[in-house]
Amino acid sequence: MTRPYWTSAWRVFDLSVGEMLWSRRTVFMALVVGLPVVVAVIVRVLDVFGIAALRVNGQAMGGTSLFGLMLWLLFLRFAVPVLAVFYGTALIADEVDDRTLTYLFTRPIPRGSVLIGKYFAYLACTALVVLPGVMLTYFLLTPVAQIGATFVSLLIDLGILAAGLTAYGALFALVGAWFRRPLVVAPAFVFGWESVVLLLPGSLKQLTVAYYLQGLVPHAMPADGGITALLQGLVTDVPSTAASLGALAAITVGALWLATREVERREYVLPQ
């Protein structure tokens, strides 16, 4: 007798979260997320000694501006897609490579629930490492007097990062389910297609995830003239917040639906 879908997904989640958290990928994830925290600690120490860590046009960059820059460049444009590539594509591909997929598919559970359970395990693992990392970076960089005024922006930033992990993760779960070599396709999408298309005029950029994430970011950037102006100057064409949220939700649901459909229908040939 086949178990209910969501009960099965929960069992797979429970099994997978530990496997993911203690895998070699986690070392990589710790490095990616730990780097901004280390940078923030260095900036804080330099600040104690009255040394400005970063100057723009001869002016010392404030902690709030620096946090905004790190959130944009290190977390949103690098850490989130890279983690989604490494974890998302591995949800099914790892089981195929390790020849353990058979053990999951021969259990009395819906095949799609395997992917869904693993996807939520990925979300739990990455969110519980990335979001605390961002929180630590924020408290290290932001002057205490400005926390009250900027904390709501941080909550929005955390929401955007969670949305990024959700959408990219779903997309790369689909890539992992579809392609035999997902680790070739997924980085090409993030660092090739998205990077190029975002700079081109026209509507091709609507076929990226980054376009919709960028649509959310300017609204959440800390209100500090210089950096906000700089980043908003780079992103001249941004969709509205509602359109961005709608598109990210559609990408997530659509990609997960296609991925579960693929997993349920496809006959995986395990390497000998």
Partner: peptide, 10 residues
């Protein structure tokens, strides 16, 4: 414990 640590920091 690892997951609780993440939740704790948040």
């Amino acid at each position: 414990v690892a997951m609780m640590a993440g939740v704790g920091v948040l």
